[in-house]
Design a protein around this nucleic acid. Structure first.
Lengths: 325, 325
DNA sequence: TTGTACGCGTTATCAA
DNA sequence: TTGATAACGCGTACAA
């Protein structure tokens, strides 16, 4: 910056101003500075800028998995929204446990982000303490709670489970099972489904729970367990993701069971492929991009000093009825 | 740090040393410092550290799309490899054009990353100049070239296209078409396929090229174009991704065409679902995680000052024969 | 519209 | 093993 200034015949401060607020510099000097920048190939040092101004223009985002499209599409929208205002995203994967998250929060906080996006509402005590201590806006997405750390954008997993149970019961199903991966939020949907379904039908709901991440394999094994070990027949299977639902579909096909006649299936997430399986997968749709956008807007409002607007934004969900149930 | 030092009865410098090189501080002071850190809830300022040391422990990664699992799984492996050595990743999406990439490179460079990962080998002149000017290690992934900016990890798209053409010809196919999305690397595979196939069979290869990103919809429309507009019958269709191949499969089914009898299909990328469609999709597998790992290792070697080791790493590809061709 | 002086929170260098 | 001092490259007063 010093060098650019010399070349343009001005001081370092003027160059700084030219870059941060062009209106405060005369057109003539502005032109000379531009030229000098071009000539020197000057690239600003955002590290120094952030240190001096105490604003990094960086926002941290922590998601369970970056390869899972339900999270990455949310982040895509979030990043787009923040980028329009000049913010850059630092993205990391937390896995599905609060302890992995804790270390990452500390690591991210040391980079002095201007805000942080977290997935889910369950965080360790130390995580909450660090976040509070950093005194930056925090938005928790993909879930809602009455007591957010700060901001919150998502939907109710419990309401989702109940709505699916009602949907299933009202469609005439009287037996049911669930297949779920090892995700705490998925479990909450599944449990709410089971409770409500049992309440209405009077029969217990079979369970096939897997500790690992969802896969087609899990889905196939899940249906096998429900049928072979728990005697499920002529019932509905609620899965914690469309991927699992697809696996159930495949296993049903392999066993010569008709869908939805003998086994009905409901997934979650409305992934692209779900509309194209045979039969197409009935599922729960949540607007992932909307989560990302809403989270970005909420943070940007905070940056503008506005404290109006809801701190908990429930974007809801929608059951998409297709062929599988 | 100042405050922590006071509480521990030492100077700020000693705290800095305790954090960066515990061996250079006596066990007794170390304990007191730890305690003081605990008490104050001190979180180091990596911005200041980076400014002073000229090493940010940050690595930039630029990929065309974060929602595309072929890239995100590569980044997952890359991030894991770098994290083990204390590096954090700044990830951004470039889209598929060099101009979008250019802005992002400048933005990332201003954060003073210790290295940069780029997808592909085609970059604007200004991008290359900025990168060279930053004098940091750069690794280009997902492709190979004889003249990398610095490091390079990937496979040959041209060899891939030729190998698929040979595979198709040798499997007895004498007519062919291609369906491709608007990705430059995809086009190179497709073009190499077409050239080789025509060379061996003597017949021209039909084309359905889409400017947008791949989708099932594109796949369906692609097969329609090949059949309705270009008269493809009893031939093989090479797609630039498994998603497109799946779309072709669906369209073939909708038209009552047998696969691979009347229409054979080959995809690219070996995505999870490909093994479970009916029939399963014959595809080209590249080891995405290996790309990420190799890129991380190559950079870490550079950081250690080692200049041995290949600067161009060809990890190859493999044709996976399944039901669709 | 421009410049001077100072501080942001670390690491590096040197001396004790 | 520890401490004093000087950078690192910028933004923010404040003054001119």
């Amino acid at each position: 910056m010093e060098a650019v200034g010399r070349l343009a015949g001005v001081s370092q401060v003027t160059v700084s101003r030219a870059l941060s607020d062009p209106a405060k510099v005369s057109p003539a000097t502005m032109a000379r500075i531009r030229e000098a920048i071009e000539l020197t190939g000057y690239v600003p040092n955002a590290l120094a800028g952030a240190l001096a101004s105490n604003r990094s223009k960086l926002v941290s985002a922590l998601v369970p998995s970056i390869t899972n499209v339900v999270y990455s599409s949310m982040i895509q929208a979030f990043a787009a929204g923040m980028r329009d205002s000049g913010y850059q995203i630092m993205l990391s994967e937390t896995g599905f446990t609060p302890t992995e998250e804790e270390e990452l929060v500390a690591a991210h906080l040391s980079r002095r982000p201007d805000a942080m996006l977290l997935t889910g509402i369950h965080h360790s005590a130390r995580t909450r303490r660090m976040l509070l201590g950093a005194s930056i806006p925090v938005v928790e997405v993909w879930d809602i709670t009455d007591s957010p750390i700060d901001l919150c954008v998502g939907f109710s997993h419990i309401e989702t489970g109940r709505a699916v149970a009602d949907f299933a019961y009202e469609a005439g199903h009287r037996r049911a099972g669930v297949v779920s991966a090892g995700d705490e939020r998925a479990r909450r949907r599944i449990d709410a489904f089971s409770e409500r379904f049992t309440q209405r039908s009077g029969v217990a709901v079979g369970q096939a729970l897997f500790p690992a991440q969802a896969s087609l394999e899990c889905g196939r094994n899940g249906l096998s367990r429900l049928i072979d070990e728990q005697g499920l027949r002529d019932g509905l299977v609620f899965c914690s993701s469309d991927l699992l639902a697809h696996g159930v579909l495949i296993e049903a096909q392999a066993r010569g069971l008709s869908v939805p006649g003998e086994i009905a299936v409901i997934g979650f997430g409305d992934q692209d492929f779900g509309a194209w399986t045979t039969p197409a997968i009935t599922t729960v749709r949540v607007d992932r991009a909307a989560f990302g956008h809403a989270a970005a807007q909420a943070l940007l409002h905070r940056f503008e000093g506005r404290t109006d607007g809801a701190s908990v934004i429930d974007l809801g969900f929608e059951i998409v009825r297709r062929g599988s149930a």
